[in-house]
Design a binder for these strands. Structure first.
Lengths: 188, 188
DNA sequence: CGTAGCATGTAAGTTGTTACATGATTCG
DNA sequence: CGAATCATGTAACAACTTACATGCTACG
């Protein structure tokens, strides 16, 4: 399955559009990539060190205003080359692990009531995500000047939206079915 | 995020509908749950041992025809109870890690050509999955006698299909856009 | 001044993959 | 018999989370 160091390339990718600190990389993940990527500090900080010692990134002194404790890193030419190589290689999917569906699958052991709550919670979360993605998309479209980066960003948002819409529709359909099951169970 | 031993409950879940060996559990994951769950032998076999020593499952001697080296395990009353408790607790999503989207996001560093190949490969895989899910659904619907288990199973297949359809549509849309980008790049 | 949040970092523990080993059986 | 496949299992490693530690600064 080849799960070699995807974090490494996530960091290189973020740095490819400008110097950034560990803290800011994390923020970028949470604010921009959240619907398809995630990193934790425990991954980021140790990797920044090893990427530096590999010569793929280096500390970037410029632009550190006093009172700012952040340590910005910049990508090196070698780092960029390695990132480009990775981008050109076929990707590998992570093995699926959908805990909600696992619970749905075995729900005949507890009946529809517990799972209703979970699908409802999932629906709420997906609706919030829907709103966030809509905002992200209009944010991108408001940009006046064209950049290729934005085109690719938009593509990722669009898959996010399609998946999100699919999940919302499924939740609504499924909640109805579950309610029917619940009623049927009562009358027996 | 609470990622406590999801494998444990996947195993208990499979055993809840009848005794099964490690090998068969793996097979069940690959043949039935594949579109939303995955386990490896390295997880299954050690866990079977520890679940047995916890008293949640036990070896089941019945039905072992000679020449069959499989070791079937059956769920115990305690095991079933713990499974039911888990099913009633809220689920937690695994942090997202979509490598394809990560590559798409940073593709301005290499241009559209490499990513076209990957989206195309993804499209092919999703189309195969679409076919498999369609078959699974009609397999379920062919069943003459009603069982609650089947209703829940069907629900999981339906989400699988919705997500799969969304991905296929996105791939087609995106491939077109990428081809346009490629042409534009040539003419510059 | 003291509390809250910023920013970096580390250690311990868990989870999961991969690759390999083993022996048994089936089948040409 | 020899090769392939079945079935169980383990060891080594890599990935990842979590909780904690630290010191600094902003701000009421």
């Amino acid at each position: 399955m080849d799960r070699t160091n995807r974090t490494k390339f996530a960091i290189l990718g973020v740095l490819s559009s400008g110097p950034s600190s560990g803290y800011d990389i994390k923020k970028f993940c949470e604010e921009v990539l959240a619907y398809f990527w995630h990193e934790s500090y425990g991954q980021i900080y140790p990797l920044l060190r090893s990427l530096e010692s590999e010569g793929l990134i280096r500390k970037d002194k410029k632009g550190t205003a006093k009172g700012d404790r952040r340590i910005p890193y910049a990508i090196t030419a070698t780092g960029k080359k390695e990132l480009q190589e990775w981008l050109s290689k076929p990707f590998s999917e992570q093995p699926p692990r959908n805990e909600l569906l696992l619970k749905v699958f075995f729900s005949n052991l507890v009946g529809p009531v517990p799972v209703i709550a979970q699908v409802q919670a999932y629906l709420d979360a997906q609706k919030r995500l829907q709103g966030a993605l809509k905002e992200a998309l209009s944010g991108i479209e408001e940009q006046t000047e064209y950049s290729e980066q934005m085109v690719y960003w938009k593509m990722t948002v669009k898959l996010g939206m399609r998946l999100c819409n699919a999940r919302v529709a499924w939740c609504q359909e499924t909640l109805q079915e579950l309610e029917e099951l619940k009623e049927k169970g009562k009358s027996v």
